[in-house]
C-alpha cells in the first residue's frame, strides 16, 4: 500500500500542529493555500483557528469549489474546530453583519459556534470516541458543537448532550483539537482511511 499524501489547509490557525502529528506517523504533508495545491492528495485536514478568517480567505482565493471537487473526486476531509465549521451545512452564531456564514456544505449538520462559551469556559475532558479502545483527552477551545445531526451522519463522540465528533462517508469533523495533544490515534485513523483510497486526479 502506498503511503497517502495529506494536505493541511494553511490559511490560518494551527496547521503546523496537524503537520507535525501526521509527519510523526510518516505521512507526507502538503500545506494548501491555493486550489492548485490539492493536486495529488488523498486527504485534507481543515485545522482550528478562526472560521471567519478562513472563510474570508477561502472566498478571496476561490477555494470553495476546488475543495468540493476534491471531495467529489474521492478525497477525504477532516475538520477540527474552525475546520469543522467550514465543512458543515449550516452555521449558527455567524457575525450578525454577515447574515449567514459561508461553508462547504459537505456534512449534513448544523454547527453552533462558541457553543460552550468564551475562553474562560474552554475546557479539557476525557472523551469516549467510537472506534478507539480507551478515552481520548480532548481540548475544547471556544469550541463549536453539532446542534443538529442529519440522517446518515454518525455521532462518534458526545460531551453531555452535545455531539462533538461526527462522520459521514469521507467527511469527519471534531469540535475539539486532537492536534494539541500528543495522542496521534485520530490522525492515524484518518491516514488509514486516506490510504484506502487512491489520490484524486
Amino acid at each position: 500500500m502506498t503511503a497517502p499524501r495529506i494536505g493541511v489547509l494553511a490559511l490560518q490557525g494551527a496547521f503546523r500542529e496537524h503537520r507535525r502529528r501526521l509527519e510523526s506517523l510518516g505521512v507526507g504533508v502538503t500545506e494548501v493555500r491555493l486550489g492548485s495545491d490539492l493536486h495529488g492528495l488523498s486527504g485534507l485536514i481543515l485545522p482550528g483557528g478562526e472560521s471567519t478568517t478562513m472563510a474570508r480567505l477561502m472566498t478571496e482565493y476561490a477555494l470553495w469549489e476546488p475543495v468540493r471537487a476534491f471531495h467529489a473526486a474521492g478525497g477525504h476531509l477532516w475538520g477540527t474546530c474552525a475546520g469543522a465549521i467550514l465543512l458543515s451545512r449550516e452555521v449558527q452564531g455567524a457575525p450578525p453583519q454577515f447574515g449567514r456564514q459561508d461553508s462547504l456544505n459537505l456534512l449534513d449538520v448544523t454547527v453552533q459556534r462558541n457553543a460552550f462559551g468564551r475562553q474562560i469556559d474552554s475546557f479539557t475532558t476525557e472523551l469516549t470516541v467510537r472506534g478507539l479502545n480507551n478515552g481520548f483527552a480532548a481540548v475544547f477551545i471556544r469550541a463549536p458543537a453539532f446542534s443538529r445531526v442529519g440522517e446518515g451522519v454518525e455521532v462518534l463522540a458526545s460531551h453531555g448532550e452535545q455531539a462533538v465528533m461526527v462522520r459521514s462517508g469521507r467527511v469527519t469533523a471534531t469540535a475539539f483539537h486532537p492536534e494539541l495533544t500528543p495522542d496521534v490515534r485520530l490522525h492515524a485513523l484518518f491516514a488509514e482511511q486516506c490510504a484506502a483510497t487512491l489520490p484524486s486526479a
Binding site: 482550528g48 469556559d121 476525557e126
Partner: peptide, 22 residues
Amino acid sequence: MTEANTGTPALKQGFAEMFKGG
C-alpha cells in the same frame, strides 16, 4: 460525563496557537 478542567496552561497556550497565521 468526565469532569472538565478549565483555565489550564494547555488551554491558555492552545488558544494562542489558534491565532497563528492571523
